[in-house]
Design a protein around this nucleic acid. Structure first.
Lengths: 217, 217
DNA sequence: TCCGATTTACAACCATCGTTGTACTAATTA
DNA sequence: TAATTAGTACAACGATGGTTGTAAATCGGA
């Protein structure tokens, strides 16, 4: 009897993708508001799902948060690794290829996964309130996996004599740092494409000169 | 009549430093728990002050948070600039001095201002919920001021022919990035002094080779 | 010692929120 | 079509928390 008109859900029959709806909706809200601010009601509304369904799928808020972290890290890492493979698989002009790589990484991919990087900021702030195991698992499927993939490519390049690398992990870390122009506090990154190119190029040059073989310096 | 025995406040007369007590207590709690999690009650307890006094001094929670951000940024920036001046004022051996500078910056100073850097993570996560003016003011009295001081020192060093620098601001950014070994997600930084030295040295080498004048490469 | 300002303890208000139970409805399968 | 499953609406509970008013108490200085 208390049935009403509200919420004719999806017009098409879609179902069983409830879980995915929840994950993407929760990513949006967690990334925007952070863990504490984000309410289950807001997430349910964003996902077009009842709050009860969220609890049925993920147990409680903390469980949902961890699932979102894992999912988002996995997707973003795959996208980043794809870019790594695409740009650093076949090197023709090292500096040019690195610049293109950096632009691809900080331009369209950062834009497409903006919510993910916002979520990463939340995780970094919230780390003290997340079980250590969950933080470790996230590091493993996310940043560490990406850095290892990048380090492997750098090692290949070094093996061809185009780079001199002592510690590929440190080199990968340096490269990632030097080509990330974003001020973390300004999510909407009001940086123009020219500015990105300028910062990325400067970062790549600094990286290259720090890791070029002696004969090329 | 409802007077009781709880809370014999400070045995010594201290007063009028209530404001400072609140700021340092709030820094502790905000840094540990983040803005939303931090309750006024917890802050009052940490500061040894009644909640009412907090409202009398800072209006509301948001006002307190912004005051804490400003205060903490100001203190940390002064400490960082002091280290910059001490290590980069008189250069004798550029690489050695830079390594010492990096160690000073990432070792004792990071430890002493650990709460500050934890707060910075909170601000980065919370940026979307803080008035833009407050974020700008924080950037100005904190990171930007430090980077400008570092850029000025680097320009001096370049003027003496020890570095080749096109854009001192970018160079300062690079140096700060390369000598910060901390994984942001692991606040308790379980990195040994040897590991710090290793990472800082690698960062300094990469930076130096990226910015040395040609004749020294 | 007395006055004004500051601080405190306390209560109360109102809002939000995580979570659960439940009965009803829509979708899937046999 | 019947039975099982998954999803929804709704209400309710308990807890927490920001904020304010107020009267007592404490402190600094004249």
């Amino acid at each position: 009897m208390t049935r009403s008109e509200t919420a004719r859900p999806r017009p098409y029959g879609g179902l069983a993708d409830k879980r995915r709806s929840i994950l993407t909706g929760a990513l949006t809200v967690f990334a925007r508001d952070g863990y504490s601010r984000a309410s289950i009601d807001a997430i349910a509304a964003q996902a077009g799902v009842s709050t009860r369904t969220i609890y049925n799928h993920f147990g409680d808020k903390a469980g949902l948060f961890q699932a979102v972290i894992q999912e988002s890290a996995s997707r973003a890492a795959e996208a980043q690794i794809a870019i790594i493979d695409r740009h650093l698989g076949k090197i023709v002009d090292l500096e040019a290829d690195l610049v293109e790589f950096g632009e691809a990484l900080t331009g369209p991919m950062s834009a497409e996964h903006a919510e993910h990087f916002s979520l990463v900021r939340q995780v970094n702030a919230e780390a003290g309130h997340i079980p250590q195991a969950a933080v470790d698992a996230w590091q493993e499927t996310g940043p560490l996996r990406v850095r290892r993939a990048l380090a492997a490519r750098l090692r290949e390049i070094a093996a061809r004599g185009l780079l001199r690398i002592d510690d590929a992990d440190i080199a990968a870390r340096h490269l990632m740092l030097l080509i990330s122009p974003a001020e973390p506090s300004y999510p909407g990154a009001p940086v123009s494409p020219e500015e990105i190119t300028r910062l990325v190029t400067a970062g790549v040059r600094a990286f290259l000169h720090g890791h070029l073989p002696r004969r090329d310096r």
